[in-house]
């Protein structure tokens, strides 16, 4: 413990001099194409590219950190990283505990995916990831909600019959259904949820929020954000 403290103290002394501000970017790394860990073991995806671009524009150094979705907000609050950039939709409920930048991705369509299209989503058992807007949506309706910690587990639950359908962002489910060889189908019951995806920040970090807001505004204005969205989500994706 003692050597650890000395080591970190030394680090702090040597690191601080003249470098640009370091921002620790917190993400989940399990939600392609938004964010995932690629085969080289690094964070990759739309949000990685966007985050790196934003950091370049604001002249800050970015350090990527992955964490469980469950604890992604508490870890931000206790200062383990400075931003959440993990496909997190802006909702009133979340706005009470953290702040968001303006949206960098328009309000998303959420969709159901099941083994066959005969599933009645008003009464079936629906799998969703804990703490997502999709989970709250299912909980408010008549269907039975089955929660899982990771997106991957929600899909696995449908495959092995534990749940009748999975409810998640359409952009996440569509490639899975397309590559399942007909095993999984998308149901024709899309729902628009949330107020777009934004970057989550601590309420006290107003300066950082302003910086990112400006950078996102600039990217929206010159069309580079739309380009990036089309690159990762296909030509049909909703853009600004």
């Amino acid at each position: 413990m003692k050597t650890m403290l000395i080591a970190t103290a030394l680090m702090a002394l040597t690191a601080g001099a003249g470098l640009s501000q370091t921002v620790r970017m917190g993400t989940e790394g399990a939600y392609p194409p938004y964010n995932f860990i690629n085969d080289a073991g690094e964070v990759d995806g739309f949000e990685r590219e966007l985050g790196d671009k934003l950091c370049e524009m604001t002249e800050m150094t970015c350090e990527w950190v992955t964490t469980d979705w469950d604890s992604i907000i508490p870890n931000l609050q206790s200062g383990n990283y400075d931003t959440i950039i993990a496909g997190m939709s802006i909702t009133d409920e979340r706005m009470q505990v953290i702040d968001f930048t303006q949206d960098y991705f328009p309000a998303t369509e959420s969709a159901y995916m099941a083994l066959n299209d005969g599933v009645d989503i008003t009464s079936a058992v629906i799998a969703a990831q804990t703490g997502t807007i999709q989970a709250s949506h299912v909980a408010e309706g008549g269907a039975t909600l089955l929660e899982f910690a990771t997106p991957d587990e929600t899909v696995a639950a449908v495959r092995n019959g534990e749940a009748d359908a999975v409810f998640a962002d359409k952009d996440y489910l569509a490639p899975i259904a397309a590559e399942s060889g007909g095993q999984l189908v998308m149901l024709d019951a899309d729902v628009q949820l949330g107020g777009g995806i934004g970057m989550g920040l601590r309420k006290s970090d107003t300066e950082l929020k302003a910086k990112f807001d400006d950078a996102i505004t600039a990217m929206k204005a010159d069309g580079s954000l739309n380009e990036m969205i089309t690159k990762w989500f296909g030509a049909d994706a909703v853009t600004f």
């Binding site: 680090m11 690191a15 150094t61 609050q77 206790s78 200062g79």
Partner: peptide, 16 residues
């Protein structure tokens, strides 16, 4: 709900 110490007190330092 936030726990906010000054940047110099972060362990390990934010830029580490």
């Amino acid at each position: 709900l936030e726990f906010r110490v000054c940047p110099e007190a972060k362990v390990p330092h934010g830029s580490a």
